[in-house]
Design a protein around this nucleic acid. Sequence first.
DNA 1: CTGAAAGCGCTTACAG
DNA 2: CTGAAAGCGCTTACAG
Lengths: 353, 353
Amino acid sequence: MRVTIADVARAAGVSKTTVSRVLNTKGEVDSKTAARVRDVIASLGYVPSSGAVGLARGNSRTVGMLVPSLTWAWMGEVLQGVVDTVEAAGYGLLLFTFNRGADSVERFTTQVSARAFDGLLVVEPENTLDKIIALSHKGLPVVLIDDRGSHPDEFPSVVTTNHEGGASAARHLLADGRSRPLVITGPERFGCVRDRLGGFREILPTDLVAVGDFTELSGRLAVEQLLAAGTPFDSVFAHNDISAAGALRALRAAGRSVPDDIAVVGFDDIPMARHTEPPLTTVRQPTRRMGETAARMLLGHLGGTTAPDEPVVLPTELVVRQSAPLAGARSGSNSGSPAGSSPAAFSVGSVPA
Amino acid sequence: MRVTIADVARAAGVSKTTVSRVLNTKGEVDSKTAARVRDVIASLGYVPSSGAVGLARGNSRTVGMLVPSLTWAWMGEVLQGVVDTVEAAGYGLLLFTFNRGADSVERFTTQVSARAFDGLLVVEPENTLDKIIALSHKGLPVVLIDDRGSHPDEFPSVVTTNHEGGASAARHLLADGRSRPLVITGPERFGCVRDRLGGFREILPTDLVAVGDFTELSGRLAVEQLLAAGTPFDSVFAHNDISAAGALRALRAAGRSVPDDIAVVGFDDIPMARHTEPPLTTVRQPTRRMGETAARMLLGHLGGTTAPDEPVVLPTELVVRQSAPLAGARSGSNSGSPAGSSPAAFSVGSVPA
DNA sequence: CTGAAAGCGCTTACAG
DNA sequence: CTGAAAGCGCTTACAG
């Protein structure tokens, strides 16, 4: 049924070894012989069985990718970057999630032991870094796409400039004369959250910090509570676009004008960001490039290149839209000393410490 | 290095055949022997090589999935449904896109011939149905997740109720007293577009049809042009949420109130739909379930179950939000004869026929 | 430049 | 209930 290397050898009147050699352009083959073999391959429509090749060579020409969820807005870009790069290199991509708890974890580790793939790309599902590290120690090449700011030095990783991203948001607001910003963060346990907050406060110190959980609700609640408390603020920096959207909604419901009364800056630049009302100024994460870069690093590693010791850093980029336009695009406003000393940080997310 | 079935056999004092038998619970094995073998397997941490198993058995316990793009808002849900189902069955999922043109196509067909996977799930990249059909004729089990309404009867497929979905949108608007709707469609060549339009017009005839292309821009332009022409309309039915968002934006810019002046209904229920201003009433596609169902059908097929001849139909569901609330939630409004006869259908998408 | 043979790590008749 | 042997479809020393 299936045409094998033996069929090709027979039809071309050569040994399987020779066929294999022209297939892999390995070793010297008489050019006339090679041409004949190639003709036979073409006419028979022969394609080597990936399974057999893998078994004989001891690798699978496949990389695995592990992600916490496929439905997050920015995950599609990461995946697309990975798939494009991996496909272009002639590798396959095997996709895994840890969506179904311990069961998933077990199945995944089995696949690893089964040598179903040669290397692993991972966007870390929460609390699995130790497991990933263990796999890496056992010899599995791993590259981390570090959305959390975990900074492991066990294996190479691709990160973005969370600190500088926060700072750029602050600079933008400061240039527009904003001096009392509210920061709506993600869960405090994430390194990226600490970095974004740190970068922001270095430029624009503030103690109006609402600890959110990256949900729209947490953004809405943060603004509603501040409004209810009567605490004055002139801008919002949300740690992701979803919670920024929540902030926008709460401001609109309260009749506050964005950006005239309150400017709003998000983080991520997911597709939705350009469709909020008003369109959202946000710190863009280079998600697709992060996927591409991580994939390239892993493929390089498989090919023998030694991976960089330091995390590869890809820059964020401030995307200016109407929710926080360029300075001067508004009427007057002014400085005043940054940072007040009123309400302490408060929490609006359902976040365990 | 790697522990093989031979290592296990040696350590347990049995043949590889016996180890294989307890591994696959196939054939009779003395329970004491079996227990001993299992102990050895556990203590050695033995996991069969998937490559070797695949080669010996002639299958790969892997299914392929081919999608046009990974960055579409609803694709993540489909993928998640597929991955969950496939993982639960102990299969792997190999992901492919046709993003990079002819090159991708070639690589993909090669993987098929290489028997890298046992069956294929496909969300059809445009103009590839003939290729998929060819693969299917060559014996590759295929299940189509038919977002386009292509209706091929070459292989099993999962579809949603596009016709009824359109009708449900119309019924909702009609119940709210709307009589002059604008329909913003997707590209006319898609079966789903014709079905949605047909279902809608059966309930609420209209000749205000703007042929869009599923982009935000096309939704915006459709409304702007109608507004500029001074053509009266009291509602919008957009064939996807993105173009509905465009319509919302144009209406807002023109100072028309939604839903008081104009009610808006979208299609898909992507995550963004709940964050538009106002939140979007929309016809929900059961994307995750479509992924799950297609995966289950394919796995069943691989397991020997014969797939249904007819497409499996999963129902849409109208999700009511503020852009088109329930009848009675607004003030007065009235009927008037449905359908005028003014402007003919117009086109706002950059769509080839 | 070319080929026979062993080997990759399993499964599956076949024989007992 | 158990095992020896062949086979899945390749690659890779080794020998010529």
